[in-house]
Design a protein around this nucleic acid. Structure first.
Length: 551
RNA sequence: GGCCCCAUCGUCUAGUGGCCGAGGACACCACCCUCUCAAGGUGGCGACACGGGUUCGAAUCCCGUUGGGGCUGCCA
């Protein structure tokens, strides 16, 4: 017998039936506000309680579902009226990963595009691996990128009652069975099997559930189809799905279960997540059906292509640089990061690369998301960051750069920093740096007692035969010259002419002597800002060092 | 191994059967501009993985091959 269980996600339009069945009481205001809380309020979902009050959809007839409180048709109704509800559900086992950030972003964009709700849910069912500080880190990284949850963060750790109710329901319905096998026992038995995975050993043993892991009885025949907004129908034959564990022997729920229960209770209409979760989706679907008995409440799915490294492997916490926080730390702008991430898998219908948030929101479509994995290309991110940096007003740039000028990060003694001096140089610096972390390198010579000594630069200087003469002449001329960039420029040009050399040749030793580097902001402005006294002193010191080097 | 996903320049992509002798962006190279660097300008290199079909016509549809990836845990 071949049963085709047709499980499909819905487009908003595809659930009209539900709409007809259910008396609607549309609410204008956002659910959070209806609760008397701000849109960004951090509320706790009362576990397993009646959540309809939170929903965009008013309590409906046929209310309490099997899981205790979920309104089975609410999600479908919400979808039908455009009340999209999406969620980002990270597990707090580390910093926010750029891949997760993109998934969050696509959820957020879709929510904004459809005027829906963006829910944040912390999937912390694995107490062994979760750490509280990661939760804060994830929330602040999301916030940095401009994504504030409309609801949440909800924590799975606070919803155990809801899971236990769901587990009881499934158990009583005969969808589960207790399993006493250890991993080793299973491995030993299935090693020689053609189809690996659990062999169903305990399926008919009728074991007591107390103290045992609970497995889901996957139908032996038939298929489960995931209708994916990005990939189309993906068919999984039940034969290939083992009886998976849904509850640990400790009684704690596992990801597939908690995830589904939450999506039901939170009335999620669209599940947008990484493609790595696609293989576990039919399991969730099976649980969903067992719990709800009606596919009408099923959310639509959209499995995003993964972000990969140069070896085209999934970005990993261990070998790749994936923490959003670390990009922030290096001085990437949130807007640039967001823009770049958005373009990794989606492109603007008008072909624009630099987009405002409004433009992204307006043009974003799940159905237009690419199917193939995308390489996280630092080069392009940097280009984009530079574009954003250069597009800022000088004041905004100064504010953005401030953290990198602070005592804990800047290499100079705090008391030597001069806001006015930095302001003067800021426009010149702004158009040269790729990330804010490079700002100190551009201006450190202004605030350091002595310019730092860059080995390569000094080597070049000492190899330049004309350097001593250039320095000597510069010393003489700068002592007399009127002190402005313009006059210093022409005086130095005259010096070059005198020596029969190009200006770009003579400016080099002067730059190294004064700033310690071969590259930096325009030289003559730098000299003007630094001041005659310091310039002459540094020129002299360099000349001395050069002489000494030569014996 | 099994199941699943994917396949256009080095990279991100446009392309939804004729407008494609494949367009843009990043990167790279050359030249110009230039006090270094950056920016800017001009030009260049550079791809439909392969093989079969379907069709008057295929990058676009179908099948297969190859290649890559993901999943395969009492993690999520």
């Amino acid at each position: 017998m071949r049963v085709q269980r047709r499980v499909h996600g819905h487009r908003a339009r595809g659930v009209r039936g539900a709409r007809r069945r259910v008396p609607l009481r549309p609410q204008r205001e956002s659910p959070a506000r209806a609760d008397g809380q701000g849109p960004h309020g951090r509320q706790q979902l009362p576990d397993g309680g009646d959540h309809a009050r939170r929903g965009r959809v008013a309590p409906v007839a046929g209310g309490a579902g099997a899981t205790g409180g979920a309104t089975p048709v609410a999600a479908a109704v919400a979808a039908a009226v455009g009340g999209t509800r999406v969620r980002f559900a990270p597990s707090p086992t580390g910093f926010l990963h750029v891949g997760s950030a993109r998934a969050a972003l696509y959820n957020w964009l879709y929510a904004r595009h459809t005027g829906g709700i963006f829910v944040l849910r912390i999937e912390d069912t694995d107490t062994e691996r979760n750490r509280e500080e990661w939760v804060d880190g994830i929330i602040s990284s999301l916030s940095w990128l401009g994504m504030e949850p409309d609801e949440g963060p909800f924590r799975q750790s606070a919803r155990t009652d809801a899971y236990h109710r769901a587990i009881d329901t499934l158990w009583e319905a005969g969808a589960l069975y207790a399993c006493g096998c250890s991993r080793d026992e299973i491995d030993a038995r299935t090693k020689s099997n053609a189809t690996p995975g659990y062999d169903g050993f305990c399926r008919d043993r009728g074991l007591e559930r107390e103290g045992r892991a609970l497995r889901f009885k996957v139908p032996e025949d038939g298929t489960t189809v995931v209708h994916d907004l990005i990939r189309g129908d993906v068919v999984f034959t039940h034969e290939a799905i083992e009886d998976f564990v849904v509850v640990k022997s400790s009684g704690a729920p596992l990801f597939v279960l908690a995830n589904v229960v939450d999506d039901i209770d939170m009335h999620i209409t669209h599940v947008i997540r990484g493609e790595d979760l696609l293989p576990s989706t039919p399991k969730g679907l099976l649980i969903w059906s067992a719990l709800e008995g009606d596919d009408a409440t099923l959310p639509a799915f959209a499995h995003l292509p993964l972000l990969v490294n140069e070896r085209r492997q999934k970005l990993s916490k261990r070998r790749d640089d994936v923490a959003v926080e670390s990009y922030q730390e290096r001085g990437y702008l949130a807007a640039a990061m967001r823009n770049y991430l958005t373009l990794l898998g989606w492109s603007d219908p008008q072909g624009r690369e630099i987009l405002t948030v409004e433009e992204m929101v307006a043009g974003f479509e799940l159905s237009e998301v690419n199917h193939a994995p995308a390489f996280f290309d630092l080069k392009k991110l940097e280009w984009m960051n530079k574009e954003y940096l250069r597009a800022m007003s000088v004041d905004a740039f100064i504010e953005a750069a401030r953290p990198w000028l602070a005592p804990d990060r800047a290499p100079w003694p705090p008391e030597r920093f001069d806001e006015g001096v930095f302001r003067t140089m800021a426009p010149l610096v702004q158009e040269r740096v790729g990330v804010l972390g490079e700002v100190p390198d551009m201006v450190d010579f202004l605030f350091l007692e002595r310019p730092l000594v860059d080995e390569g630069s000094w080597e070049a200087l000492s190899k330049d035969d004309s350097a001593p003469a250039v320095l000597d002449r510069a010393l003489a001329i700068y002592r007399e010259s009127e002190w402005s960039a313009e006059t210093l420029h022409s005086a130095t040009q005259a010096l070059a002419d005198d020596l029969g050399r190009k200006l770009n040749k003579v400016q080099a030793p002067i730059r190294v002597a004064v700033t310690g580097r071969r590259v930096g902001p325009p030289l003559f402005q730098s000299l003007e800002v630094l001041g005659r006294e310091a310039v002459l002193e540094r020129l002299g010191a360099a000349r001395e060092r050069l002489g000494g080097d030569r014996g």
